[in-house]
Amino acid sequence: MKRNYNIFHVLTLAFTSIILMIIIFSCESPLILTGIFIYFLVVFITCGHSKDIKDGFKYFAPFFAVTLIINMIFVTDGTIMLFKAFGKDFTLESLIVSFMLSFKLLLIMYLFMMMGIMIDSDRAVSFFSSKMPKSTLMMMVTFKLFPSMKNRLVTLKQIYSIRGVDFEGKGMRERIKAFIPILSILLESSLDGAFDIGEAAYVKGFLSGKRTVYDRQTFGRKDYIVTLYAFLLIVVYLFFRISGSLNFDIYIGIDVSKFINLGAITVFIMLLMLAALILILTEENEDGLHRY
């Protein structure tokens, strides 16, 4: 059954995401990164977004290639030689480091995709319009204009192809030149429209005084639970990190205790528990209601 993850407060999600981002950026322990990976998989699969796992790879592929190549070329340390090419040694260590960095990149991609799934745009708009009404209005107007401008451009392109403009001309210069009339018309008429939009907002009393909020978002019990847990996670992580038990430097030597130690295991388990926590909090009873 598909779960609905749109029930959390925007701030809860933002806070958790930044915590995860800090861990991804600053952590070298493969175990912890795997924990985060598992957490993402759980979320994607349980809310029916398994396709996103694949899509993430698609976005990731070009960056992955660059990451791998550059890192392989420039990381020269290491003792276990794999092969020699262009007068350079390629070591197992450099391969592992490159993979780790690429893996982090993938995790960051997933993090953004997960935010897209979990943030309910309607609730986000409610929240932001209560805190930042002007920016929210500006974003909303832009968001509304975008598709209609795009359609208008398509129509204009048709009209000007009838008027004899050649949009498939030779060379970049000609092609850009073909857009002279339609870009000018679009800019002019959209700016004309801007005055109407401004007037409509004015007449509707925007910025006329103290605002109230429709559908005010409340920071509920589940939000407190998740936020506190995420806070605990970062504290524990920092503790082990500072105590040095998470330092993972592959060039010093590959050693099992570097992979798996008390710190790494603790944070790993905490990440799994975060996934479990989210699952419990979003569990619906038979009536489709949330337990918390």
């Binding site: 209005l137 801007a194 401004g198």
Partner: peptide
Amino acid sequence: TKEIAVIATLSA
């Protein structure tokens, strides 16, 4: 409101 509308329009 006027600036909001103009900036939004230019952004779009």
